[in-house]
Design a protein around this nucleic acid. Structure first.
Lengths: 172, 172
DNA sequence: TTTCCTGCAAATCGTTTGCATTAAA
DNA sequence: TTTAATGCAAACGATTTGCAGGAAA
């Protein structure tokens, strides 16, 4: 799992800013700003990456905090409702959550070996999808494209071993 | 859910042929050809569509057969191993199984209202995905593209109601 | 104070597994 | 006969929910 922590891109770190936006969201909706909500939001808004609930619990533990699993889920729901994070399902048998990216839309390259997730966007793809939906009379709502394969690092590590065959959700 | 039953395309129906191929597969692998395996295979190989285990159990019931849930799952695994069906995960919280299509690869258009699934293939998309994987040094294994939206029928039925926002796996 | 959270444990849901029984080869 | 499959029920893992006790506003 690639956990890209806030790279300083020249400006102030993004995390705290987003956290403040979440506080604002809560106040505006007359929802209490609790320590737990701040902790969970702090973890997921403070780093780029696609985190499972387990990932998030680990990060909380590393920060020396404990938040009940139910509260983690409930806060993630809130964050999703607020539009600040998105839930993803890569067919792994659990969900991952991702801070809403700066770029409007992107797709995912997923390494079958190490689970690393790389994002990319492609304008031509974007246009083609709208066209395809139209062709079938669909009102396009959203879409997702996932490319599964082996990342460069794992290719090196493994030599020439072929990737194993995929079947969604088969619990290992 | 669109359950396209074998359309007669000029030749003999495909289902029985595939069922026979599955029997052959079992014999070749020294696996017993049981009544249950034939029933389950008959159901999924006899129709086009993307079926949940629940769908399959319903179809079995309609045929007046009962097969234990565990056996259904086990037979679906066998069918997947034999390469005759594919498992899909559309992020609905359960898997769907589909008879391996005539065409080598296709994508899915999914109606958020009625769950209908429409298949399409697009050669240009295909090529772009290979290129994108390459660009990131990935060895491409497989991919999936899903477009979610509202199908023409549901658009008519609903008037101009906007589709509801998506979050994967949220159990309804 | 009133209202809404939180944590825990129990419940759910799709899927898998253990095991005694039964059927295919 | 031998070997493997079946069905049931229990186990599982991710997620949700009920509820008593505890914080925000």
């Amino acid at each position: 799992m690639v956990t890209q922590t806030d790279p300083v891109e020249g400006g102030p770190p993004l995390g705290p800013q987003l956290l403040e936006a979440f506080r604002r969201y809560l106040r505006e909706h007359n929802l209490p700003v609790t320590a737990q909500r701040e902790q969970v939001a702090g973890v997921i808004l403070g780093a780029r990456g696609h985190f499972s609930v387990e990932d998030i619990e680990r990060k909380l533990r590393e920060r020396g905090t404990h938040v009940g699993k139910a509260t983690v889920y409930r806060t993630l729901d809130l964050l999703a409702q607020s539009g600040m994070i998105t839930a993803r399902d890569f067919g792994e048998g659990f969900r991952r959550y991702e801070r809403v990216p700066g770029q409007p839309h992107h797709e995912h390259l997923i390494c079958l070996r190490c689970g690393k997730v790389i994002e990319f966007a492609n304008e031509r793809l974007e246009r083609m999808k709208a066209l395809i939906a139209e062709e079938y009379g669909f009102r396009h709502h959203h879409h997702r494209l996932e490319i599964f394969g082996t990342c460069p690092e794992c290719q090196l590590r493994d030599g020439v071993a072929p990737p194993s065959p995929p079947q969604p959700g088969q619990r290992s």
